[in-house]
């Protein structure tokens, strides 16, 4: 847009040396706000109170926190949490892509099935979903797909063989991520202006290439923030798998403090690890956002 170009030119001119503050007496400074100092005082109060209530508070038992922070049991729990997060995210995003594609298909059967899937995933608490999956063999002892005629099955598996604490945890969390990310993908793709599709179609581009080269690269910008939010939520939800007895970070510290009753220091250990890993995820998010901002 011509106006945008002019605006950035004038904005560029402002940063030139001759109009900088201190050099040009006609330079216009930002208007000082009287309320500004109040917020700095508030910040100071927060720092002081944080120091007194948390850092310099013997009841937090920072020595015990330090003792357990790198304890082998805690690190093993952390490893389980990470493996669970990575596998459930990968599987969940694949499910999400398929469900989103079905949701936008022209075929009403696919659209309907995707809609029902999203409806169920949204409605059922993850905790209940994990329990259903773990006790699946009690409900459905054998998983099979019969051939349309004859007695043979395409496959026929004992449910107990495929459902373990670990697989139920991964699948349960992945189903959850799948349902939620499908909606994020769909809204992201829908946010790309209609003219982009028309421009692709007008030059004879196939749907698949249009998606890959034009629509998805533009949609990713929109998708990243809510998707990162979803994955970070899932990362913390891994703690829910303790209901089916899978031992990850939070369950590990719970097991430890049920023996030594150092509840708060051990929860602090877990939360500090969650903080660190969430920070890493957020750094990754801002890197991705920068990567896909090109040309906008």
């Amino acid at each position: 847009m011509p106006n945008g170009a002019q605006y950035s030119q004038t904005r560029g001119a402002n940063t030139e040396k001759k109009t900088g503050p201190g050099i040009n007496p006609m330079h216009i400074h930002p208007r000082p706000k009287r309320s500004d100092w109040a917020w700095y005082v508030l910040l100071l109060v927060i720092f002081v109170l944080f120091y007194e209530w948390v850092i310099d508070n013997p009841r937090w038992k920072w020595d015990i926190v330090a003792h357990y922070f790198f304890a082998p049991r805690v690190l093993a729990g952390l490893k389980s949490t990470l493996i669970l997060t990575v596998l459930a995210s990968a599987l969940g995003l694949c499910i999400g892509v398929v469900i989103a594609a079905c949701r936008m298909a022209s075929n009403p059967v696919l659209r309907g099935l995707a809609y029902v899937y999203i409806w169920i995933i949204r409605a059922i608490p993850t905790l209940a979903m994990l329990l259903f999956l773990f006790f699946l063999s009690a409900l459905i002892p054998r998983i099979y797909l019969p051939l349309p005629f004859g007695d043979a099955n395409v496959f026929d598996i004992d449910t107990n063989q495929i459902i373990s604490r670990f697989s139920a945890a991964v699948v349960g969390l992945a189903l959850y991520v799948g349902g939620h990310s499908a909606e994020i993908f769909r809204s992201g793709l829908a946010s790309v202006e209609k003219g982009q599709r028309e421009a692709c179609k007008a030059m004879g581009m196939s749907d698949l290439r249009m998606m890959w080269h034009v629509i998805v690269p533009q949609a990713i910008r929109i998708i990243i923030p809510p998707l990162a939010n979803e994955l970070i939520t899932m990362f913390k939800n891994t703690s829910l798998v303790s209901v089916i007895g899978y031992v990850e970070l939070l369950t590990t510290v719970q097991l430890i403090y049920s023996n030594n009753f150092e509840t708060i220091p051990l929860l602090t250990v877990a939360c500090l690890w969650y903080l660190i890993l969430t920070s890493v995820a957020m750094c990754g998010q801002s890197l991705l956002e920068r990567r896909f901002r090109r040309g906008v």
Binding site: E193, G195, Q196, E198, A199, V214, P217, Q218, F292, R294, G295, V296
Partner: peptide
């Protein structure tokens, strides 16, 4: 409306 590809 032109419809150029903004990321190219």
């Amino acid at each position: 409306g032109f419809h150029l590809f903004p990321h190219y």
